[in-house]
Design a protein around this nucleic acid. Structure first.
Lengths: 240, 240
DNA sequence: CGCCAGGTTGATTTCGCTCAAGCAATGTGG
DNA sequence: CCACATTGCTTGAGCGAAATCAACCTGGCG
């Protein structure tokens, strides 16, 4: 276990503020969370947990960025999704009573809060609201996952990349200038990991990026993307 | 609303016996289900619900077979999954408080039992166990969906088809002869729908089938499949 | 009989993968 | 300071898998 661990007061309150699941906590629940949670720093490259490991509890992300990966025998890695501050990792295997089906790798430094499985069950038993919130979260995630599956078998890589860029707007957009200048994103991922998210080779992504620049849709420079024509970006995944 | 509708006694008990969610029902819960559920026949081609419709309740499948489909603007249809007796359809949008994100089409005739959303909430309020069961179901389905996503971007169509055949064994195998003769499946789907499940064109599936026959893995005749070499079928999705 | 739906096959094209080389930015050791 | 690896990314050439387009079975069914 790396990183600095500390007991914080106010962990429960922070979680309630940051997420739509933990806001169901009552004040006595928060006391339990404050008492039972382990809060620590995380550093890029560190693994929170590994595919196949038994699930010991959940990780609440206070800050930083986590990548959820899955690998197969031949080393083909897929980046299933990104987890941002306010997200809770590991609730799925906990509630399904399964082992982890993916690994969680830290991409940007920050703080996470660990809650043991036993604490989770205790909280859910005394506050059924919490279960309901996670039920809703699971149901929504399932819908998104099915949507994404449908998308991958239906759309071209280019369309899927356009969609990915669009969904990154929410978390990665630089503060807007009010001078009408175009939107700029700071991508939290290397080209390689971007390709992983789409399930393609990095060379293929390079070519897609070249084409998008040629067509004046967006401009890429390092980890910065300038969206030149938001309208055309959206068109990408309407038309095929 | 087509089909024959009837009030049945014993609907609740039947559901408890057939599924791992509804077995949480207590006897007074079952009475409520018996009283509030609408049971009716379903015929092939009929739609239980449509993508985009608001969710009014859940459908419990007593018998028959349902296909869950998703279509996009260009008419590309994907068969997301099959629903068998014992499955509950529509719980996801209900619990996520969303509209349906897919359509449900009857593939084989049978009986379904409809439970209105209000009844569902009532049941879950008086018996938290039921919510927990659905939470577990949602969590497991989410895991399977992520697994499937990973598979589609990682494996070849041939490997995915092999996997599909393998998973159909559970529901579609003809009764085994104890004379060592090979396993035979009766596919519940047309070639076209099989292709949909893999997200490929039917022509491509035709060719894959030809190759599997050539390689002596399985033999296809109409909707019957004889698995000649189960071992080799399993190899298909280990090796690439 | 003609007609149609579902399925197969062949020819061609397109898309993304593989392999190989090149390039820019960064680090490292003499 | 320069020679040199190393890392992350891009580009090109060739290949293979699946899509597309078109023709052609095959078995009902009026």
């Amino acid at each position: 276990m790396t990183g600095i661990t500390r007991k914080t007061s106010g962990c429960g309150r922070e979680m309630a503020n940051l997420s739509s699941e933990w806001c169901a906590l009552g004040s006595s629940d928060m006391q339990l969370v404050d008492y039972a949670s382990l809060c620590r720093t995380i550093q890029p490259g560190e693994l929170l947990f590994c595919e196949g490991d038994p699930c010991e509890g959940v990780y609440f992300i206070k800050s930083g960025l986590i990548g959820v990966r899955k690998e197969d025998a031949e080393g083909n890695s897929t980046l299933l999704r990104l987890a941002y501050p306010g997200d809770t990792l590991g609730y799925r295997p906990l509630l399904a009573r399964e082992s982890y089906r993916a690994s969680a790798e830290v991409l940007k430094p920050g703080w996470v809060c660990f809650l043991a499985a036993s604490t989770m069950w205790q909280l859910m038993a005394r506050n059924p609201q919490l279960g309901t919130r996670f039920l809703q979260r699971a149901a929504r995630s399932l819908g998104e996952c099915q949507e994404r599956f449908h998308e991958t078998v239906t759309l071209s890589v280019r369309a899927r990349f356009a969609h990915l860029l669009d969904s990154l707007k929410e978390h990665c957009a630089l503060p807007e200038q009010n001078d009408g200048s175009p939107l700029v994103l700071e991508l939290p991922l290397s080209r390689c990991d971007l390709a992983c998210m789409l399930g393609v080779r990095r060379e293929s992504l390079s070519r897609i990026i070249r084409d998008l620049e040629r067509d004046g849709v967006a401009h890429f420079s390092g980890r910065y993307v300038r969206i030149d024509s938001d309208a055309r970006l959206l068109e990408e995944f309407v038309t095929k």
